[in-house]
Write a protein that binds this DNA or RNA. Sequence first.
DNA 1: ACCTGAACACCGTTCAAGT
DNA 2: ACCTGAACACCGTTCAAGT
Lengths: 210, 210
Amino acid sequence: MATSRAPRLAKKPRDQYHHGDLRRALLQAAVRTLQKQGLAALTLRAVGEELGVSRTALYRHFADKSALLTAVASEGFRMLRSALLAAWEDGGRGQVGFGAMGDAYVRFALDNPWHYRVMFGGGVELDAADPELTAAGTAAFLALLDALVEQQAQGLVRKDDPQTQATFVWALVHGIAMLAIDGTLQARGTDLGALARFSLERLRTGIGAD
Amino acid sequence: MATSRAPRLAKKPRDQYHHGDLRRALLQAAVRTLQKQGLAALTLRAVGEELGVSRTALYRHFADKSALLTAVASEGFRMLRSALLAAWEDGGRGQVGFGAMGDAYVRFALDNPWHYRVMFGGGVELDAADPELTAAGTAAFLALLDALVEQQAQGLVRKDDPQTQATFVWALVHGIAMLAIDGTLQARGTDLGALARFSLERLRTGIGAD
DNA sequence: ACCTGAACACCGTTCAAGT
DNA sequence: ACCTGAACACCGTTCAAGT
């Protein structure tokens, strides 16, 4: 009961979440729990407990658990997009940058395996029609599409329909990421680095014998 | 209370599963439930109820739910292998058969979306070290590997390391299947048939501009 | 050997009630 | 407006008991 008003703006120990940021705090706590303990540990009780809040407080900010996970997925696509753009630009927006982008994609999945799974509806029902989710997913896809369009202009890549070409590349990298996450590749003794190099080269020239 | 002994071999309404086939019946009931109602509906209670058996009877035949799902996944890989082999052989074990194999793979995933997800640990914890599961998974992979080795011998495909080449192709088709299953492709208005044709062609010749 | 039924410790969600 | 606490209908799993 010493100081009363002035410092309360800096530190509000009790009712910290009575001003609209509980939603953000819940989202971050969910991401943290997912990352550290996996999907099975991501219960509404656990999330609430980590924030010192009732397990039903969440319902003020999300319709249900599915809505929370949809927000988690959206956040994941934003993170992925940032990683892809950074790799592309740091790599010089060309062949090297494109390879770095692929590596960054797979690394994101391996570094955030549970989060990545949730993004693609693995084991959870998302609200697929959610505008925030579709926007975040599209933005991440656009990072890849733009990189291909730019390489087409540079004469580095075939001038196929960009949408179809980007979908093709995305499927390849998504497949590698998924097989890496669930341990299938490791179980067969696959060298992920070697597979990445092989994939980038064959993506360019194909597996045909001509 | 009419007939008593003779017809009981044909129809045993009560103790039908007291002779060792409850395990198989549980497995098939689980696959059926998965196919018709999804993973969330696949509870031990539901499976038991469908067979007119207590919900704990299962524990005589499977260590836990994870073991049941591991058996479901194994069965899925056997089904997938059959589909791949049939497509490859019916297509004439060459370029046409290889394309048919890819189509069969994606079709299997689309026809059995929940089953396919379970096979790759989507939303469930499998016993990844289970010998039956690894054997079934390897056998399915071998169908693809053999097709590539045969095409290498025919001069249709580059003589890369077959294991790495097969993993590359598998990742591509797995990625397409996964994106198709979770509705991501459809949400972007992708024509799956066109994507399949594009993918098969670019798989052969690559996306490079040379 | 094989199956049952009650019990236990969880879970997401609802709802009347508090501030 | 925002949060709580008790209650409800589920779930997987355990275990003593039946045949």
